[in-house]
């Protein structure tokens, strides 16, 4: 290792005195880790919130409901208020210049713009 890397101590040492179980003991090298971390969705499912009283706060029921305000429609490209909607690309746009531009956009850019507001076509 280079001296400046060692000096900055950016690499975490593998053995730490204060630990009772070292990382290499927990996850031996060369062995398949076999660990599969539950993702948040799985964690929530395992919590079985439906078995608990409804008024007890939990991770799921403290979430905000959908907004009561009317959905703000803004131009996907410029951010201006968008009175128009292009049925071909499904993008919202503010004026003719933007319209010209979105019609000349390649499809992957259109999809990326749509993905910004989670409206892209997702192929599974």
């Amino acid at each position: 290792m280079e001296p400046e890397v060692l000096e900055a101590e950016i690499v975490l040492p593998t053995h730490l005195n204060f630990k009772k179980i070292q990382m290499y003991e927990k996850y031996p090298k060369g062995q398949s880790r076999g660990r599969h971390w539950k993702h948040l969705k799985q964690i929530i499912q395992a919590e079985n919130y439906q078995n608990h009283p409804e008024n007890e706060p939990n991770y799921v029921n403290i979430e905000s409901p959908p907004s009561m305000h009317p959905c703000k429609r803004i131009c996907d490209i410029t951010g201006f208020e968008a009175p128009y909607f292009d049925p071909r690309t499904k993008l919202r746009y503010a004026n003719t210049e933007v319209f010209k531009m979105i019609r000349s956009l390649p499809n992957d850019y259109v999809q990326r713009y749509l993905a910004l507001r989670n409206a892209a076509v997702v192929l599974k």
Binding site: S64, S67, H69, K72, I74, G79, L116, R117
Partner: peptide, 26 residues
């Protein structure tokens, strides 16, 4: 416009496709 369009999502999560209330409604 980006200067205020981006933080606007805190008040209008709809802009990035999250259908939840913004900070003021919360």
């Amino acid at each position: 416009v980006e200067r205020f369009r981006c933080p606007e999502i805190l008040f209008n999560p709809n802009l990035i496709g999250i259908d939840q209330a913004g900070l003021d409604e919360m």
